[in-house]
Design a protein around this nucleic acid. Sequence first.
DNA 1: AAGAGGCCCTGATAGC
DNA 2: TGCTATCAGGGCCTCT
Length: 287
Amino acid sequence: MPELPEVEIVRQSLNKKIIQKTIKKVIVRNRNLRIKVPIKFKKILENQKILNVDRFSKYLILFLSGRNKLLIHLGMSGTIHLLEQNKKNFFTNMSFYSSPELPNKHNHIEIFFDKFRLVYNDPRRFGFFEIIKDQQSLEKRFKKLGPEPFNSRFNINYIYNKLKDKKKNVKNFLLDQNFISGIGNIYASEILYLSKINPSKEGRSINKTECKKIFKNSKLVLLNAIKKGGSSIRDFKDALGKKGSFQKNFKVYGREGLKCKRIDCKGSIQKKNISNRSTFFCNFCQK
DNA sequence: AAGAGGCCCTGATAGC
DNA sequence: TGCTATCAGGGCCTCT
């Protein structure tokens, strides 16, 4: 479901509510997420204070008052809901109660604070909750991942050197988290549209000018998406239930058959499967 | 090593 | 109505 901007929006909304709050109780209803939730999960979390909510790429990192960190990935369909706790029911009725924000199925994990609870919902269960024992393990966990677009390590030479002798197409490069982390299927198409690069183009045929465009537009697209609260397709919301609006700014994603938005471009938006992911591009201005 | 493809899983929607 | 097929903001693993 979420790419870097959506995860960042979730992070921001969580940060407003759970910093310095203590976890009172944890319920794991289904341990079978992408990574199995460990038996000790509940014990590790309960009575811990949340010091900070950070993010790297599409991962949320909750810093706990002990050394442990809670790593959360939302996969394709994971959502986080912060719900005000009804005082009367607090600790007496743990079953679901009606809330317009909360789906009635697939609420796998619940984390209770004093006056509210955090619910993790994930129909497809591609997401996960993982305990990381210290800072060193956290760094190790992310070691293989490439830099985020905002990191200085991600620059024109980095892009050029990675792509210069590869046959892999440029769209798959943008999706490759070991090359650059945080971009997903929607923003990959959007970045290549703004860069006027055909998504099927081989890495080795991308020149420095194009690398510069990828460099610039990767940052631009993600930052603009964050500014707009993320993209609310399939009903994405932040942890407090607020929708984003960047979907209104999509130039190509989901616009198959429609006219290219570039002034004076006669092209239309095509949809093409690249490595089993839908890819959108203008057949005229993306060379 | 690089790159393609399968697979994990459920739900919504389209087409018959 | 009810079936089947396809598709969905991700990422890991296996095979060539």
